[in-house]
Each structure stands twice: as C-alpha cells, then as structure tokens.
Design a protein around this nucleic acid. Sequence first.
RNA 1: GGUUCCGUAGCUCAGUUGGAUAGAGCAACAGCCUUCUAAGCUGUGGGUCGGGAGUUCGAAUCUCCCCGGAAUCACCA
Length: 598
Amino acid sequence: MLTIEELLFRSVAACVRELWGAECESGMIQLQKTKREFEGDITLVVFPLLRLSHRPPEQTADAVGRWIAERHPEITAYNVIKGFLNMVIHDAYYVRMLNAAATDHDFGHRHPETGSDPCLVEYSSPNTNKPLHLGHIRNNLLGYAISNILMANGIRVVKTNLVNDRGIHICKSMLAWQRWGNGETPSSSGKKGDHLVGDYYVRFEREYRQQVEQLVQAGQRQEEAEKNAPLMLEAQELLRRWEAGDTEVIALWKMMNGWVYEGFDETYRRLGVDFDIVYYESDTYLHGRDAVMEGLAKGVFKRHDDGSVWVDLREEGLDEKVLLRSDGTSVYITQDIGTAMLRHRRFHPSRMIYVVGNEQNYHFRVLALVLGRLGFPWAASLHHLSYGMVELPEGRMKSREGTVVDADDLMDEMTETARTMSLELGKLEGLDETEKEDIYRVIGLGALKYYILKVDPVKNMTFNPSESIDFDGNTGTFIQYTHARIRSVFRKAEELGITVPREVPDRAPLNGKEREIIKLILDFPAVLRDAADTCNPSLLANYSYQLVKEYNQFYHDHSILREENKDIRSLRLVMSSTVGRVVKDAMNLLGIEMPDRM
RNA sequence: GGUUCCGUAGCUCAGUUGGAUAGAGCAACAGCCUUCUAAGCUGUGGGUCGGGAGUUCGAAUCUCCCCGGAAUCACCA
C-alpha cells in the first residue's frame, strides 16, 4: 500500500511539473510531520521549490496546496503559514493504516533474504581475570540489542564473543591463587567463579604495589621497581611457561578459566544475552602472524633492525604501528587481524560489527587500514560500534579504588529495589511467589537496561549508583507499567464479555489524541530501520517512551470499557492492543521483557 | 603536542535530511484515587543549545577558530 508520504511526494513532483514546467531535484520535496501547534498532519516545506516557482513562499505553497487538494480526497484541508504548507489527512486513511498495522503480525519487520550473507556482531569480549562490571553491561546490552534490531530488519546475524583468555592478566590471578589460595575453589568457598578469580587478581595487584613501594624506598626508580618486583617477574615467567605449553601451568589455566566461564555464563543468562559462536584468543592469537609475514613479503609492511614488524600509516594521518614484536610474538592487533580473516573465511559476512568501547577507536581505524593494505576488499565492511564510557559522579570507575560497579551486584540491587517498591504498592497480591519473583526481576532488569540503552551509544554517560535508576518518569518501568495496564484492559474486557475486534470495523472519527497515537504507531517501521542503519538502539528506546507517554495521557482521558463509550470502543481497543504489541516488540528487541501485570 | 569524540534547563537525557515558538524525566511547588492499575495524570517555574565568526530564506544540527571535558597516540590488551 502506498503511504501518504509516497503519494504526496509524487503528487508534488507532478504539480511542479504541471504548474511551472520544472523537474524537482532530489531533496527539494521536503515532507515532515506537522508541528503540534499547527493544524495539519503533514507539512511540505516549500522554500526549496521557490527556485522553480519564481513566486513568494505563500503563493507557492497555496498553489501546491490547491492543486493537491483538488486531486486527492485524502487531503481534506490545507493551510499555509509562511513557507509551510500544512495538510490535513482524512481520518479514514489513518483508520485504514491502523488496521493494516493491527493485523500484520510482523508489523515493521522484514523477512530475511534467502542465501544472503550474514552480518557478524562481536560483543562482550571479556577478560578472564575479573568479573563483568557496568561497562560490560553497556557493551552486552548494545551488542545484543543491535543484533536483534538487524534481525528484525531481515538481516541474518551471527553473534560472536571473543574471549581474551590469555596473557599476563590471567597469569597474575593464577600466581596469586597458587601463593595464597590454599586450594580454594568456587564450591569450597561458595563464591561465584569469576568473582573468586577476580579476588585473586586484586590480591596480586595489592601485593605487587607493596613490593614496588618497598623497592622505591630502597632507592629504585618507579619504572625500575615496576619491572623488577619479584611478583611481576614471576607472573611473566608463568606466561612464558604457558606459551611453552607447560602442562602444569596449562592445567591451572584451564581450571581457573573454567571457573570464570561458569560465572560469566550465569551473568549472561541473567542479563539475557547469548552468542552463536565464542572465539577464544588462545585459539586465534597465532593466526594473524602468517598474514603479517605475507604482508612483509609483499612489501606493505617494514621490518625494523631489531626484527619487529611495523605498518606505516602516516599517509593516513596516523602513526607507525607495531604488528609483530622483535621476538616474533604477536601483539593485540595481530590477533584481531587473524580473527577477522578466520571469520571472513567461514561466514563471508557482508558486515562485521565490533561493539567495543571508544577507547579503542584508534585501534579499529588501524585494523581496517591494515586489512586493506593486505589487499582484502572486505576491509571496508568492518564497522566499529563505538560507545562511550560509563562514568561515576566522581569520574571513571577504578578497580584500584574499589569504585567498580559489579554487574551481578547491580542486578541484585535492581531486583531488590523492584521488590521493595512492588511490595509497597501491593499490586501483585493473588500471584504466587515464583510469579512475583519473576516480575521483580523483570522490572529491576528492565529499569537497568532501559536506563543504559536510552542513551546515544556515542556519548559517555554518568551513572549515579544511589539515585540514577528511577522507577518513575522516562524509565523502562513506566513503559512496562503502561503495557501491563493495556493487558489489564483486555483481561477486564474478557470478564465483561466484550469482544475485541481484530480491526476497526467502522469509520469512527478520530480525535486529536487518537491521531497522534496512530501516527506514532505508523512510525515504528521507519524507526526500526533507522536503528539498524545507524546501529543505534537508543532510537527504539526513545521511540517507545514517546509512544507510551502519549498513550498514557490518552488512557486517563478516555475510558475504553465504559458503557457510554460503546460505539467508539472498537477503535480504542484496536489502538490499545496495537500500542501494546508495538511497544512490547520494540522493548523485546532491546532485550527488555514486558510483564502482563505489575 | 597530534588525532578522534563529547558539550542542550540545577541534575540525567531526547531533539528526524538544516525548517516554524528547542522537548521529556528527576528535583521544587500546586492540584487529581467511588472512575479500565496513582510505578500514573494535570498545572507552575526553570534555556546565551560552551563562546565567536561563516554558509543559508532558515543553524542545537553544516564549516572554521577558540574554551572546557574525555579517549588515544605502547614491542599492554
């Protein structure tokens, strides 16, 4: 079905051709929603057309308005204010479009093209030496949400996680555990595996700092002391033995990483995110080396006298960047080169999206350029979905100062707060305990997820642990609450024996509020597309709030089930159920569950 | 110092391709529960869109310069 925008677009072009004998160039026909304070639904901005009409704005707008109104019964009236032509659209059009949305189970969604290449999304990518924190939550929510949004747009998605399971950081935890652990395990201590390992990492850092301090007091320079501290030397020795395949070290590494994975799995499960494929750096870190050596042979990279291999990106405005160490071992980016190649060989992705914090903007520019230098045409398909840091009121989270907001703790607190508030309101009486607990969980997590996802990813955001997350106002809770009330209307309708039509059978006139809401519903497909095109889930979050806010005002003024509203009930019921469905759909794409009651 | 990003109400954030008088929530104050769930609704107050110049019929939005903040520029990951 032709939307009214498409119809008007063509109509304006035809009008200009007929009246002034000119063709519209792209961008000249600007249609937008009419501002609330003016009468009308769609507005044509006529300024760009003045070049063709050679008339003042008002005359141009009036001429176009008259031409269109004479030919299209959908336009019932128009008015001109300065260079703006506001057109009023017939109620029947909106009722028809509402019905189309109401009866389309995949409203706004597109079906995947068969045989098309997938989009690969990498997110989470944790280190295995400490538990997940608030920054990881932003990462995971963004990655999971954008994957869902792409899928809703008919794109096949492969969700991947690249676990950084090797390196000096995990050796530090291992060393501390060997020293001070006394064989402690998750089951012996009752601690979650990732937290247990994280505690030993913290222990290492604490002891290490003491050693450094002692060396400095004994007369060494800070940098010297940091290199010479016995604990650091031991950790490095452990890394060497790991790389040499020492069975004892490998066994310890496997055991402790196993604990961490159990812990991560639980956190992921609670957070509601998942992956199709998990890559481990210990498997992939060697693969990039061959590619770098090939590039060296082709002359796109250079070897320095000490044997290290470099890429010179000064022409692109960047610096020289090391790709292989002088001892031949790989660095961080080497591993990413290898991983990208492995993935490309296996999936032929049309796009590779990396959800990684903005502190790695430089890294991903380099990665794309290096892959380009190596001659891979798909280097251009890399997309870094960069997001800002989550900061605390006093600044950045610092593990040294114990200001890291732990993911598990935060989810616990959110659920707990939801429980307390729910009990105060006392609306869940009559439900059994497991149902109640599930609703507390859904509300607590919904508030957290929405709070994070409503912010534009590119921006740093502030998280105030004591007062940030409200359950009032522009929150996930409010959206869930409105949904729960809509569901309640339908439960009541059933009790009252009111039949709910699938679509609006009559041609009831619309009031202003109803039009606003229907227009918002009809925006959903475009918002969903924009969110995918710009890799920005916050568009969906803010859209959901806007829709629900509008609906909630309507809800108060327009009783749906009252007997005196019988004749307009069908419209209101169809509208309500469609709002409920769209909002639930949008929120689910963000990973936010929608309770039927709360 | 170089590069990139951010700067909108006291606070947290929206703001569509450049479009009309820049919007929400929190906080403050005043109302609304015989009425489909008050986690809600209605109203009041609150702005040099960091500053300046430019482009344009029109700039929070695009360009340049400055100010403030963040990240990064490692043989760390």
